[in-house]
Simulated assay, not measured.
Amino acid sequence: MKESRLGDFEETVLLLVGILGESAYAFKLAEEFESQTGRSVSIGAVHSTLSRLEDKGFLTSEMGQATAERGGRRKRIYTITAYGQRALEISRDLKVSLWRQFPPFATDYNVRIRIQEI
Rank of each mutant, 00 (worst) to 15 (best):
K2F: 09
K2H: 10
S4M: 15
R5A: 15
D8H: 07
D8M: 07
F9N: 03
T12H: 13
T12R: 11
L14T: 02
L15G: 11
L16R: 01
L16I: 05
L16Q: 02
G18H: 04
L20C: 03
G21N: 04
G21Y: 05
E22G: 06
E22C: 06
Y25V: 04
F27Q: 12
K28R: 15
A30T: 03
E31H: 07
E31F: 07
E31A: 12
E32R: 08
E32K: 13
F33C: 04
F33T: 01
E34M: 12
E34F: 02
S35I: 08
T37H: 03
T37F: 04
R39K: 15
S40M: 13
S40N: 14
V41L: 03
S42N: 04
S42I: 08
I43V: 09
A45C: 12
V46K: 00
V46R: 01
S48R: 15
S48D: 10
S48P: 06
T49P: 00
T49L: 01
L50T: 01
S51E: 11
S51Y: 11
R52S: 05
E54N: 07
D55Q: 14
D55I: 09
K56M: 06
K56L: 03
G57R: 02
F58I: 02
L59R: 00
T60P: 01
S61R: 10
E62M: 10
M63T: 09
Q65F: 12
Q65R: 14
Q65G: 14
T67A: 10
A68L: 12
E69F: 10
G71M: 05
G72D: 02
G72W: 00
G72F: 00
R73I: 07
R74A: 12
K75Q: 13
K75Y: 15
K75R: 15
R76K: 08
R76M: 05
I77K: 00
Y78R: 01
T79N: 09
I80Y: 02
A82G: 11
A82T: 15
A82K: 15
Y83P: 13
Y83H: 13
G84Y: 02
R86M: 11
L88H: 00
L88E: 01
E89Y: 12
E89N: 10
R92G: 09
D93R: 07
D93Y: 11
L94N: 09
K95H: 11
K95M: 12
K95F: 06
V96C: 05
S97Q: 10
L98M: 06
L98G: 04
R100K: 13
Q101R: 14
F102C: 11
F102M: 12
P103D: 09
P103H: 09
P103V: 08
P104M: 01
P104N: 02
F105W: 12
F105A: 14
F105C: 11
A106D: 05
V111F: 11
V111H: 14
R112F: 13
R112V: 14
R112A: 14
I113V: 11
I113A: 10
R114P: 03
I115C: 06
I118E: 14
I118L: 15
